[in-house]
Simulated scan of single mutants.
Amino acid sequence: MLTPKKNVTGPIYDLGMNNGDDTDYYLKRGFEVVAVEANPALCQMARERFAEAIAAGRVSIIEAAIGDHEGDVTFHVNLDNHHWSSMDINWAGRDDSVCQAIKVQSVTLASLYARHGVPYFMKIDVEGADMMVLEQVAAHSVLPDFISIEDCRFGFDYARILSQVGYEAFQLVDQSEIAGMTDPVCGHVFPKGSSGLFGPDLRGGWEPYPEFIETYATTVRTREGVRLAPRTRWWDIHAARHAQNKETTP
């Protein structure tokens, strides 16, 4: 286990923990992790996988969907591909895949902040509820230092909201290239489906909002919504509260 940098405060929020591979990486980097996942089977696997870290107080597994209110909600577990499970049946049931509707608890970002504090880094990958989470981030007076959100057709809106609330630097990360990459700090090799590096460790160049929008509009989809890249490539949008060094990390 490594110790986070001295100027780092707050845990990491893994919103959409799924199989726990990202949480595993964050632990190796020495962070405390608040992992939110609505799929009960994946939560049980995570409680077994991270039993030692949970006992040490380094991981909190929140078995709930992230939503805009507290209480029961319907969650659709995709039985063919658990990565697609969602509160939105149209999202969960894409490609005519088989889903099972279950009742789960919903938790808001405000309640997570009250219990665990504002995170240093927040990963948002919650299959169709990402905008809902981002709107809650924007409504709070204190922001995570770094944030990432899975890109979709609302990518322009995500970046605009992040810019409006005060994020100054942006980076587009091609998720199709993550599998097999190594974090040189801890030697972790990212398995398929991982979110990869984050924050100041990202290897690409950070851009201010106007330049990032131009990059996005010429890489992912046009301002008119026409997708430019093949479906074999997909992205996360990363944002930093403060301007970052533009030089590529070695």
Rank of each mutant, 00 (worst) to 15 (best):
E211T: 15
L228V: 04
E207K: 11
A239V: 05
R227C: 03
R227F: 13
G199Y: 07
T218G: 13
Y216V: 06
H238T: 03
S194E: 09
P191T: 04
T215N: 13
R221I: 02
T249N: 14
F198W: 10
L202A: 05
R223V: 10
Y209H: 14
P208N: 13
T222D: 09
P191W: 07
W206C: 09
G199R: 08
A217R: 08
D201P: 03
K192V: 07
W234R: 07
P200M: 12
L197V: 02
T215D: 11
S195N: 13
T222K: 03
G205N: 11
L228I: 14
K246Y: 03
F212H: 12
T248K: 15
P191S: 10
A229D: 15
R223L: 10
R233E: 14
A240S: 14
L202Y: 08
F198I: 02
T222P: 02
N245F: 00
T222A: 06
P210V: 04
D201M: 15
L228P: 04
R221F: 03
I213H: 02
A239N: 06
H242F: 08
P208H: 07
T222I: 01
G199D: 14
Q244V: 01
K246N: 09
E211Q: 15
R241V: 01
L228R: 07
Q244W: 00
R233C: 07
R223Q: 10
L228D: 05
E207M: 15
R241A: 04
